[in-house]
Amino acid sequence: MSEKTELAQQFIHALPHARELGLKITRLGAGYAEMTMPYDERLVGDPQTGVLHGGAVSTVIDTCCGTAVMSHPDARGITATIDLRIEYMRAATPGQSIVARATCHHITRNVAFVEATAVDDDTEVPVARASGSFTVGEA
């Protein structure tokens, strides 16, 4: 793990809810982040199948998007979500970790635009796809 990734992971670990979900940064680039969330029975949305709740998938995607923004060379300080749209394309397979990947594809003085996907072990069809905008500089 690079020094930058490790610093970012320390930051994420300081966020109580991210720590609670066990979120880990696995890759970090300029305006790019990859984050995993381990399967956890507390996050199940359908007790009959053990499928994770969409809200938990939203949370790893939102955190990953924010991390991608903060890792952009033009970003200043922390960021906050302005809006986030998520499409749930299929149920996540019970027992498997969720891997979110987010790219900040454009950034202005005030707004960062981000796209993300989330997969489980099957990387062919995403579990979810998202796009959103985030604050830049003072929230």
């Binding site: 966020l15 109580p16 809810h17 991210a18 969409g54 809200g55 949370t59 939102d62 955190t63 986030l84």
Partner: peptide, 21 residues
């Protein structure tokens, strides 16, 4: 455990999204 930003502090945006959903 719902805190996303300990500096403000603020509820995590993912929790807010989940609450609405």
């Amino acid at each position: 455990k719902l805190i996303g930003n300990p500096m403000l502090p603020a509820i995590h945006g993912g929790v807010t999204a989940a609450f609405l959903e």
